[in-house]
């Protein structure tokens, strides 16, 4: 254990922790919203995120080519906006597919919860494997050569050709805070505020809260529950797409299995804040990001993931309703 390392680097660990925590928060929103309306864990949400990361990388390859370059954040911003839109679109589409294939048929039959969870686990693996076999899949339709830049070495790390150079914007003590971290945190916060307002103010948001509180009486009041459920998956997917973009800004590369660990962490964030609670997802994500950075600082980076898993188990045991309490309906947002 190395507490002196933690104390000398506390500013850096906090800020980078907040940045990755902001990504967790955005992904956690998807878990939390679906849980809010369906009381089901969408295990496959991690793949919604993973597809988003590939959308980002593909956009860069498409618009920029495969030659690796390093450039500043400012000159990349235009590309980033295009990538963001593409990632949000692809992630939302994947979320819809999951809803259609793994949830709707089961919900219609009133199958047990565990079955829905198993189906989602299956969907998660199928999606992740599909990404890992994308070279074969495009080969079957005869596009292997045309798409080589996008599908080669399907099971390896796939990098964004454009590496964003973090620049120091200001100093806290001796640590120079990087523009990339600031951008990630601010962008995530903006997305979350937008979502929060959307859920509070629009008709759709009211419907969502009504279904979360009580699906039966919501139906009586004329809320179209299945439309709300679909919309919830789409919203969660869009947030995961945004998270994917920020993740690629910070990490720069992805893999077919990159959703797995991140998904468990985002789920931890959702539970930490109180599953079903939008603001809880924000709080949970930020706390988790910082906590695992501190934990890594104390015990060494190889224990980083263990820190989050232990935190998840502790929170479930000590306060299963999370820090801010459960429920989309009751928390009023």
């Amino acid at each position: 254990m190395d507490f002196s390392f933690l104390f000398t680097n506390i500013v850096e660990l906090t800020i980078t922790g907040l940045a990755i925590g902001a990504v967790y928060s955005l992904v956690a929103l998807g878990y939390t919203m679906v849980y809010g309306v369906l009381q089901l864990i969408n295990f496959a949400h991690s793949e919604v995120f993973m597809y988003g990361t590939f959308a980002v990388a593909w956009v860069f390859v498409f618009l920029h080519g495969t030659v690796p370059v390093t450039q500043s954040l400012g000159s990349t911003i235009g590309l980033l906006v295009v990538a963001l839109l593409a990632a949000m679109a692809l992630s939302a589409a994947i979320a819809l597919v999951i809803e259609r294939v793994a949830y709707r048929p089961l919900l219609k039959r009133g199958a047990p919860r565990l079955m829905a969870l198993i189906s989602a686990i299956g969907a998660s693996f199928a999606l992740s494997e599909l990404m890992g076999l994308r070279d074969r899949v495009v080969g079957w339709v005869g596009l292997r050569d045309n798409l080589d830049n996008y599908v080669s070495k399907a099971r390896d790390t796939y990098s964004n050709p454009v590496t964003i150079q973090p620049d120091t914007v200001f100093h806290v003590g001796s640590y120079g805070v990087k523009n990339v971290d600031i951008m990630v945190i601010v962008a995530a916060l903006l997305m979350m505020i937008a979502l929060d307002q959307f859920v509070r103010r629009t008709r759709f948001g009211r419907g969502m809260r009504a279904v979360a509180q009580d699906p039966d009486s919501a139906a009586l009041m004329g809320v179209n529950a299945s439309r709300i459920v679909r919309g919830t998956f789409v919203l969660g997917g869009m947030m995961a797409g945004a998270a994917a973009t920020l993740y690629m800004v910070k990490i720069g590369s992805t893999r077919q299995d990159s959703g797995f660990i991140l998904g468990v962490k985002a789920f931890t964030a959702a539970v930490l804040g109180g599953i079903g609670n939008l603001r809880g997802a924000l709080v949970g994500g930020l706390i988790l990001g910082v906590a695992e950075n501190y934990g890594a600082g104390i015990f060494g980076t190889q224990w980083k993931d263990v820190v989050s898993f232990v935190l998840l188990i502790l929170i479930l045991l000590v306060r299963p309703s999370g820090l801010l309490g459960e429920s989309l309906g009751k928390a009023r947002a």
Binding site: V101, I118, S119, A120, I121, G122, L127, E129
Partner: peptide, 8 residues
């Protein structure tokens, strides 16, 4: 994975 997804 597909089997797990479809079977339920």
């Amino acid at each position: 994975g597909l089997a797990l997804m479809i079977l339920p």
